[in-house]
Nucleic acid binder design. Structure first.
Lengths: 218, 218
DNA sequence: TAGATTGTTAATCGATTAACAATC
DNA sequence: TAGATTGTTAATCGATTAACAATC
């Protein structure tokens, strides 16, 4: 068991988890590091190294029990813990996220939604009434949510982040290109920078094109 | 100028680009690698190494011209190229993406939307009529779009990806947890795995909690 | 010119891969 | 027992950081 596990490994855990879930659904009960690595597009060595950061879940000569490993990874990720979450910004993106993600399976329980648009406030979304963002301070003092999902406009993000940090929020899932810059550098911030992802795609398509053009020349 | 630039560097380019855009907006004309690194939370050395993969854009004793560097990075990423794109799946997520991302600034021009829901087909979104997904083959043969944005349900993704690959699509932006598994391994696939991101956040919040608890014990 | 800061080479660090003894 | 496959140590590879001469 390792002292401090690198972010590279952590980022692979959800992927292992997904693949194992698929195997489970397919009724497969055991898998070797070799087989799993082929599915993931990595090496057997890496699979074993990664898993052994957290413990020896396999069995020599046999491999890994799919169900056991699946549950172990859920436990490592803390998906059984259920942190409470609030979402700020019930616009199109907020709605899409609410609609698409099963928070409960990912370690969170959504307890409130906030917006500043009078037309949206009061609406019911996914069983929760949208609250006025002006009441967020009181809400946090009373209910002490663990994390915040930020699906609001770019400009509003930095201020809201600071405000929520002061209110005791200890994790951010940020969808805007605005920066979540906090006092406490230890508070985790997961950014989903869609624009960045798209620009990376642009670069890679470019590279492929260049390559194809060079091949045609030869 | 480097032969093959690592993905680690590529993934940082959009971030440089964003920060430079902010500087530009703020009317700042020059910046040193040191200053830029502080904003980005990295080292001056890394900034210079990264940029020098593509050319010497700075000037000794002065630093980098913000506007010039901004334009250079746009050109490296290929944002001036404007690849044509289609989007498949005009549900909540598709709509949110359409609403939020300025494709034109990210190297793409959206030319068509597709869905299989009769209620959605025919609607106009962002100036484009939603087309029946059954007509996608003909559309691709005629208009030869470069890339596809996949915002459809998980189950539909693998089949659609293969179908589109055969139709000549050479880049995918995938929002589902379904796998885009292609014949040609060189075709770029950018996955936006929201669930993975959320699970990583869960892990990191967990780590922080553990740390705080240990501190309290001491 | 003196000071600042780049571009680039060299050193370090960390992550990935390979190898193999342990063992189911 | 023989075969398979893990857990783990060692080797390799790549990425990051440091250092410094070049030069604006």
């Amino acid at each position: 068991m390792k002292e401090k596990v690198s972010l590279a490994v952590i980022n692979r855990l959800p992927r292992y988890y997904r693949y194992l879930g698929d195997l489970l659904d397919a009724g497969i009960t055991k898998i070797s590091s070799q087989e799993l690595s082929e599915k993931m597009g990595t090496t057997a060595s890496q699979v074993r190294q990664d898993l052994n950061c957290f413990g020896g879940f396999g069995q020599q000569g046999y491999g890994y029990n799919v169900e056991l490993l699946y549950k172990e990874i859920a436990s490592i990720l803390g998906l059984d813990r259920k942190y409470t979450a609030i979402l700020i910004g019930v616009g199109k993106l907020g709605n899409a996220i609410l609609n698409r993600i099963t928070f409960e399976k990912r370690g969170f329980k959504l307890i409130a939604l906030f917006d500043n648009n009078p037309e949206i406030i009061g609406q019911e979304v996914r069983g929760l009434k949208v609250l006025d963002v002006n009441t967020i301070d009181d809400f946090c003092r009373i209910h002490k949510p663990d994390v915040a999902f930020l699906t609001l406009p770019r400009e509003a993000v930095p201020g809201m982040a600071i405000r929520l940090e002061k209110l005791g929020i200890k994790g951010f899932w940020n969808f805007s290109s605005g920066y979540v810059k906090l006092e406490n550098k230890e508070i985790p911030v997961e950014n989903v920078h869609l624009g960045d992802s798209l620009m990376t795609l642009c670069y890679r398509v470019n590279e492929l094109e260049k390559k194809l053009q060079n091949q045609n020349k030869i």
